[in-house]
Design a protein around this nucleic acid. Structure first.
Lengths: 211, 211
DNA sequence: CCCTTCATGATACCGTCGTACCACATTGGT
DNA sequence: ACCAATGTGGTACGACGGTATCATGAAGGG
């Protein structure tokens, strides 16, 4: 038999091409020929590894969320070993804002998929990240731990605040994406709420902050 | 000359057809033939009143925002003459949540247009509502008035809180749209923050609230 | 050594979509 | 009464997109 190529790696490579071209032209405007050209392969190859466009799109979503998860993990790791709850929460929120090309593309495409899923049941059935509310649970858990450690307002409802923070980050991310707001303004708003929730004793060095 | 028909009315009627079919199939999947069929007219007619699909889409966005503005105005009027600042703010926020078919369609299509505008400069140049930050200014103004009247926490930064409230409403609206959260849960979170901001003296009847 | 099987390339097909063109009806003005 | 401008319908055209088909190259096993 011939070259015996790693299919999974090839698929990943094509998926990255999909993400790049979709980030440029918009997910709706991407065709198999565009993906093939971007990946430097022939149209037939794209068909070979993903039989149908639908499967390519699904795989693209999966790849997108995987890459984003990895990126957030790296950001957390870069915040040092065992950072405080506030630093962790802040890192999570800031990582989800579209501040550079990669996160801009992620935000754009994730939003595109989400909007698509409203009218496309096949896409809605797809595992959209593990995120029915994984991020929400993680964030709520962090806030509760902070409360337990006396670092956050014990009166606050952790789950409600978690939902609020994530919602604000998401919506302001979109504002940034469409050029309605600057990343700095969004970060300032998030800091405001972190200051409100975290009754920080020694963790009040914010302003010339991390990222 | 022949029938002398009201072009503007005809355009509005076709635009509503566009909105209906786009709400069903998604904005990306709508074609001129679909719009014509939905409006009960011939394809040629759609071409006659909007020469190009792009113009149809632009007009559709305009019509969508007009209808939404009117709807919000009606909601405010329904809240009685000169309601308190909190009731006004609450009405504005709740009106923007996708709780019924009309608001669901609005939220879906507005989000679709917004995402589209990221990669389509012609659409980005369009007056996307009057909303670079009209809603934000209005909301901030309301909060400031409430502070002046001693109804809201005077320590709070009105603009920051306005941005926060609108952002949460927007993001949770999307969560509702994709079926990730119930309208009730979203409303509860919003109420939580209204309770935090408004130091309501007699306005503490919330829970079996307005809408 | 060759044959089977995996991998890849070129290209054809069929549907759809936006747009353009042609034809006709209707009606108000002269 | 006829003409011309407005409104409306039917249909064709060119392009593009996803998918399918045919063909070929490469390599490991009998």
């Amino acid at each position: 038999m011939p070259k015996r190529v790693d299919h999974e790696e090839r698929r990943a490579q094509i998926a990255e091409a999909l993400i790049r071209v979709a980030g440029r032209q918009g997910l709706h405007a991407v065709g198999m020929r565009d993906v093939a050209a971007e990946a430097g392969v022939s149209l037939r190859l794209v068909q070979y590894y993903f039989e149908t466009k639908e499967k390519l799109l699904f795989y693209g979503l999966q790849h997108l969320t995987d890459r984003f998860t990895a990126r957030v993990g790296a950001r957390l790791a870069a915040a040092g070993p065992d950072p405080g709850p506030r630093a962790t929460v802040e890192a999570l929120l800031l990582a989800s804002l579209p501040t550079d090309d990669e996160s801009r593309t992620f935000h754009l495409l994730y939003s595109s998929y989400a909007i698509l899923s409203v009218t496309d049941e096949a896409l809605a059935a797809q595992p959209f990240i593990d995120n029915p509310d994984a991020a929400e649970n993680a964030m709520a858990g962090l806030l509760e731990r902070a409360q337990g450690a006396g670092l956050a307002d014990p009166e606050a409802d952790a789950r409600t605040e978690a939902i609020s923070l994530l919602a604000m980050a998401a919506a302001m991310g979109t504002s940034i994406l469409v050029g309605q707001r600057s990343p700095e303004a969004a970060i300032a708003v998030l800091h405001h709420h972190l200051d409100r929730i975290f009754t920080a004793p020694g963790t009040s060095e914010r302003g010339a902050g991390a990222n």
